[in-house]
Every structure is written in structure tokens, then in C-alpha cells.
Design a protein around this nucleic acid. Structure first.
Lengths: 256, 256
DNA sequence: CAGTGGTCTAGACCACGTG
DNA sequence: ACGTGGTCTAGACCACTGC
């Protein structure tokens, strides 16, 4: 970064970086901050150094650091709090819990949630799961199945795959003891921050098994949501296939 | 706005605006730009004045105008083009056509689309539609039904309601003659820019009628997408209930 | 070459949170 | 009172576009 930065802004017009692979200073700073986040230099929920401190460290102006942080804040990787500092986003805070869950009750009232783990075991990845997770076929993955309920009504049946290497001590037991969002657990127990996700949604008919678990009639229409979640650097770390009962709930989305 | 702006930035510390309803200068500029867009001072596809010109007009620095435009660009109301200017977003350009359509083919290939208008007539608004459109019950609305096909395969059945007062000469005839996205027509013929939308998605079973039109088996699972679209100032101007066949297509969404 | 948006800096002051 | 992020300004230079 320093090779594109004039040490004295008034003294040189002869740096020749422009043509090949030019990248603005603030993008380079953003990259450095991303590295810091990725290697957990600052952990979720913690504050990163102040803008002035970062500016001094990277030898740029506060404005440049500011712009880098602005972008990271827009992507929800950082959260700015006036008067307090800038914090690493976390899945633990009330404000952002279930940040990725778009299912909302039709009446708009928040509901009590409960999670029941049906199954959790280590298996060899199928070809399609391996591909989505950027693994080799037959690499170890953790397969987790669970049922989420709202006000005791079973509503979401999730089938989840995680890279085995990344989630070593994850067992049905450790899951049963944990309260709160799964992504919070991943964050604090395995140091994996879910940062972004892509979903593909279809309407499907419930199979007999699925209908039984979700307590709906066989071949009822269900929302099928296939999610791939990513950490820093767009590395995929979770595949999740969810089946949602949408009789009294809906998937909410905003288009811009 | 000028009453919160120090004419000479070094000369006054006595302006007393702070406490009551403080709003940053750039937000006020943003508001003024929004007004200009709303009253069609600059039309979709056209360029707005340059940053320096706007700065002079509003008596603020270029940086302040810049920040206002930045936000409008982030909301997709404006589009910046380096070296050319800043343009009002439009639904006509190839880049942003079907900006609000999230349905994608499973194989990722773009498909030929065709639209068939089934019905278009003026009716009294039902209570729920009137409520969603901020109208009085029984106000006039245009009700439009159509079938969208991809590669000749019927895939989306849309039922659309529009405020009657806003869409006077809209008829099945004028629709049949038009090629391109509906929102493009609304924009150029009726001066209504769709800027944002909210969708609620459920899985439902096809009724006999719906199944016939979409050429699927009766009670097949369908994606039901209820959309409310807004213009400038968050004024609702369209309600749309779509039924999507998701056998070879899916609804694509990104979570941040 | 002129005009547009894009980057970068430096410095002043404001609003907010905490001690 | 102090430190944090938030706003605002002024000015320089860079990158892209079109004449």
C-alpha cells in the first residue's frame, strides 16, 4: 500500500502505479481490515481501534480509513456506534439475532422460538454438497438436522452441512446444551463468522416423513430454502436446506 | 437549509439549531434532490446536474452534495458514471431490466420471455387492496392479470392492482402493443417510477384454474409472491400477487 | 483538452457516550 | 473533560469520457 501512497502529498507526481492493477488506497485499507477480521485480530463484539489510530498505523489520513470502514459497515461486517467506537459484527446481540432468518409471522408479532436437534453426525460429503462447500468429494462433513418451532408449533425443518475440519467437537450433545442462534455458537466455539449468504427458494410438496415432523398433511406445500453461507473472503462454510411451513408465516424480502 | 450552514465556517459558534430536529446538511440536500426526482425535474435516464453545479445551487460544498448523491446511488435511485455524470435510474436499460424479478432459471441461462395479458379492467378496490395502496375502500383501481412465459413455458401468473387515478389510459390494448418490462411502461407513459418493493412469500397449492393456466397438475406447489411497490417518498403504487412455477426456476436472494 | 465523477488529504467543529 | 464517530469544508490530483 505504501508504494502507492505519496509520503508528502505535494512532492511527487512521478509514481507510476496507475496503469497496472490500480486499486484505491481505501480499498487496500479495507483489504487490510478484512485480513485483521479474518485472522481474528479483533473478535466479534469487540471494538476495532479508533479511526485515528488506524490512520496512524496505516500511514493514511483519517478520511481514507473512514471510507474503508464505511464500506465494511455497509456490508454489515462492522457496526459503528457514535461516541463509542466501531465494533465487529456478531450474531449474539439482540439487535442482530437471526439476522439471516427472513421468516416472519403474518401478524407481525415476534414469537417464542425453540430448537430440537434431530440428528448430528459426521459423514462423507455427497458430490453436490462437496462442490457447494469447495471441498473434495467424500471429505468429512458434519450433517445436522433440526426442527425449529415458534410458540411450540413446528415450522422449520433444517438439514445442515458443515466442513468437518472446521467444526471438530460439534456434537448433538454440545448442541443440546446451547441456547441461542446457531451462528452465535459457530462464532464463539469455532471462530467461524457467517458474513453473507445466498438463498434459492422453491415451492415443494411435503414428503410423508417431512409432513409428520412438521405436523402438516402429506404433500402440503412447503417453502424450500437452500442457503449457502460465507465467511470473510467469500469462503463457503455452510449449506442449509430448510423447509418452511408458510400457513401462518411468510418469507419477507425487500427489493431495491 | 441555509440557516444551519455557517456562511464562513470559521466565524460563528452561535447557531442554535442543534437541539430541535437536527438533520445533517447532506440529508437536507438529499431531500431536495428527492423532491426534484419526485416532481420529475430530471426524468429517468437523464443526467442530473454535475456535483459542482448542485453545490453552487444549494450553497454547500461539493463534498456535501457528494454524500447526498452517494446515499441516493446506494438506494439505486441514481446511477453514477465516471466521466459522464449522474443519471436517474430507469427500468428501461438492459443493465437493470427486470430489476425486481428474482426468479432465475436453475441452470443459470437467461431465457426468452413473453407476456400475455389475460385481463385488464377498472374495478372498485377491495378493502385489503385499498389499504395496501393507501386508498379509500371502493376507490377505483386497475386490475391487470397476465401470464409470463420463459421459452414459451408459462411460469408466472400475475394479478396486479394499480391506483385508478394514477393510471388513466391503461387498457388491455395499450398493454398488448407494448414490449418490455411493465415498470418501463409505467415510467414513460404515466410518470410513475418504481423505486423499492417489499415481498411476502409463501408456498401454496395451485387451484384448478391456476393449474390450467400454468399447465401444471392441480394442487401443484407454487410460490406465491405478494409485492407492494413504492415510488419516491415511500408511497405505495402497486400491489402484485404472483404465482411462480418453481420446477425449473427458483427465487434467488442474497442476505447480508 | 475540458468536464465529469473518484480519491486523498487536512483541519474544524458537532453530537454522543463515559467518566 | 475527553475520546469516539459524524459532518462540513477546501483544495489537489487521478481516472474516465467525449469532443
Amino acid at each position: 500500500m505504501s508504494d502507492t501512497h505519496p509520503d508528502d502529498p505535494a512532492s511527487d507526481t512521478d509514481h507510476v502505479v496507475s496503469s497496472a492493477a490500480y486499486s484505491p488506497l481505501y480499498q487496500q485499507i479495507k483489504g487490510l481490515l478484512l485480513q485483521g477480521l479474518d485472522r481474528a485480530e479483533w473478535k466479534p463484539g469487540e471494538a476495532i481501534p479508533s479511526e485515528l489510530e488506524l490512520a496512524a498505523r496505516f500511514q493514511v489520513s483519517q478520511g481514507t480509513v473512514r471510507k474503508a470502514i464505511d464500506e465494511l459497515a455497509a456490508e454489515n461486517l462492522l457496526i459503528r456506534r457514535q461516541g463509542k467506537g466501531t465494533f465487529v459484527a456478531t450474531h449474539h446481540e439482540a439487535r442482530v439475532r437471526f439476522r439471516f432468518l427472513r421468516l416472519t409471522s403474518d401478524d407481525g408479532q415476534p414469537k417464542m422460538t425453540g430448537s430440537q436437534v434431530l440428528d448430528c453426525r459426521r459423514v462423507k460429503a455427497s458430490a453436490d454438497i462437496a462442490h457447494l462447500l469447495d471441498l473434495r468429494a467424500a471429505d468429512a462433513v458434519v450433517n445436522l438436522r433440526r426442527l425449529l418451532s415458534f410458540e411450540q408449533v413446528p415450522t422449520i425443518l433444517d438439514d445442515i452441512w458443515l466442513p468437518g475440519a472446521m467444526f471438530r467437537g460439534l456434537t448433538a450433545d454440545s448442541l443440546a446444551r446451547y441456547r441461542g442462534p446457531l451462528y452465535g455458537l459457530f462464532e464463539s466455539e469455532f471462530g467461524v463468522s457467517m458474513v453473507r449468504a445466498e438463498e434459492k427458494i422453491k415451492a415443494v410438496s411435503a414428503s410423508a416423513d417431512q409432513a409428520k415432523l412438521l405436523r402438516v398433511a402429506a404433500s402440503s406445500p412447503l417453502l424450500q430454502v437452500e442457503r449457502v453461507s460465507f465467511t470473510y473472503g467469500d469462503r463457503p462454510v455452510e449449506v442449509r436446506r430448510g423447509l418452511y411451513v408458510t400457513e401462518r408465516f411468510h418469507y419477507k424480502n425487500s427489493l431495491n
